[in-house]
Amino acid sequence: MPRQLDWSTLLFFLELARQGRLAPAARRLRVDHTTVSRRVAELEKALDLKLFDRTADGFALTEAGRTLMPHAEAMEAQVLAIADHCAAPGAGVSGRVRVASMEGIAAQYLARRLPRLVERHPGLTVELVTSPALFNLTKREADISLSFVPMRGPKLEIRRIGGFALFLYASPAYLAAHGTPEAPEDLAHHRFVDYVEDLVQIPEVHWLLDVVSSPQVCFRSSSMYAQATAAANGAGLVLLPSFAGETDPRLVPVLKPHVRTERPVYLAVHEDLAWVPRLRETVRFLEETLASDHRFLLEGAEE
């Protein structure tokens, strides 16, 4: 008969399963890699099962490990829920929530809105993390993801909660020097700011090609904010989401609304954690925020 399980040992199993390597799992758990190896070995001994195969790339779950995984995740969700429900009376929603998104959405939209969530729930700590690629919620790299492409992964709740439009912008100085385009066909005679092509990890971010088939690009950057700054300093025209272009006093819209494109916004959360109070409240806040900003995001109307 297997020995009684220690819940904390299952945490080591979960993190190694998600990360696939000792060092990243150890960093997440804030221990050294030998501790992770030892605790997983203890779990395998207690269950009398081999849970991982060692491969050239790290650790891969065995059939027994894959069977254990959903049960361990369900226990993790229950432990998180217990911690939330057993918080001090009157404390309200509290704890840490990590929201992941692309740099542009995070820095130029979410960072302006999420402080309202903290005002509503003072016990909440919001972590806003960015990456040019999608985060992996299955590996718990984040709790909630906002992106303009739907995430993929097991046991994820994914739904579209809004969208945003993109328009052309330029600095007054650039337009004074090169003329203001009066029609879309005039764009063939202008310079543009765009992403670095070989560093684009999500094809949908190369949105300039939606509105100009062969743009004459004179400046590229992997950062949306750097692109806006270059355009503000006369580099050329730049295609920006409404939430970035409309709030930048250095830029003015060009050919709006005749030249535009759109991207959806998808929210993803792991189904085992979606009902945890701090995540549920954060999801509700994000849905409400995008709904109330609908006109601003899609039309570029003043807030």
Rank of each mutant, 00 (worst) to 15 (best):
D84I: 09
C86A: 14
C86F: 14
G90Q: 08
G90Y: 13
G90I: 10
G92Y: 07
G92N: 09
V93S: 07
S94K: 11
R96W: 04
R98F: 03
R98W: 10
V99W: 03
V99M: 06
S101N: 02
S101A: 15
M102I: 08
G104R: 09
I105M: 15
A106M: 01
A107I: 01
A107G: 06
A107D: 07
Q108F: 05
A111I: 03
R112A: 07
R112C: 03
R113F: 07
L114E: 05
R116M: 07
L117A: 12
H121V: 13
H121A: 09
P122Y: 12
P122L: 08
G123Q: 09
L124C: 11
T125A: 15
V126Q: 09
V126K: 09
L128M: 07
V129C: 04
T130F: 00
A133G: 15
A133W: 00
L134C: 07
F135W: 03
F135I: 07
L137C: 10
T138Q: 12
R140N: 05
I144L: 07
S145Q: 14
L146V: 08
S147F: 05
F148Q: 07
F148M: 06
R152E: 10
P154T: 08
P154F: 01
E157G: 09
E157M: 13
E157R: 15
E157S: 14
R159V: 11
R160D: 04
G162I: 08
G162H: 11
G163N: 03
G163H: 05
F164G: 04
F164R: 11
A165F: 02
A165R: 11
F167I: 04
F167G: 05
Y169A: 02
Y169K: 03
Y169Q: 03
S171M: 11
S171T: 13
L175F: 05
A176H: 15
A176K: 15
A177G: 06
A177H: 10
T180V: 14
T180H: 10
T180N: 09
P181T: 13
P184S: 12
E185G: 03
A188V: 13
A188M: 03
H189V: 04
F192C: 10
V193Q: 06
V193M: 05
D194T: 03
D194H: 13
Y195S: 00
V196W: 00
V196P: 01
L199A: 07
V200N: 00
Q201C: 00
I202L: 04
P203W: 08
E204K: 10
V205P: 01
H206C: 08
H206D: 13
L209W: 07
L209F: 10
V211K: 02
V212G: 06
S213A: 15
S214Y: 12
Q216F: 14
V217I: 15
C218H: 10
R220H: 03
S221K: 00
S221N: 02
S222P: 02
S222V: 08
S223Y: 01
M224R: 00
A226H: 05
Q227H: 02
Q227A: 02
Q227W: 00
T229E: 13
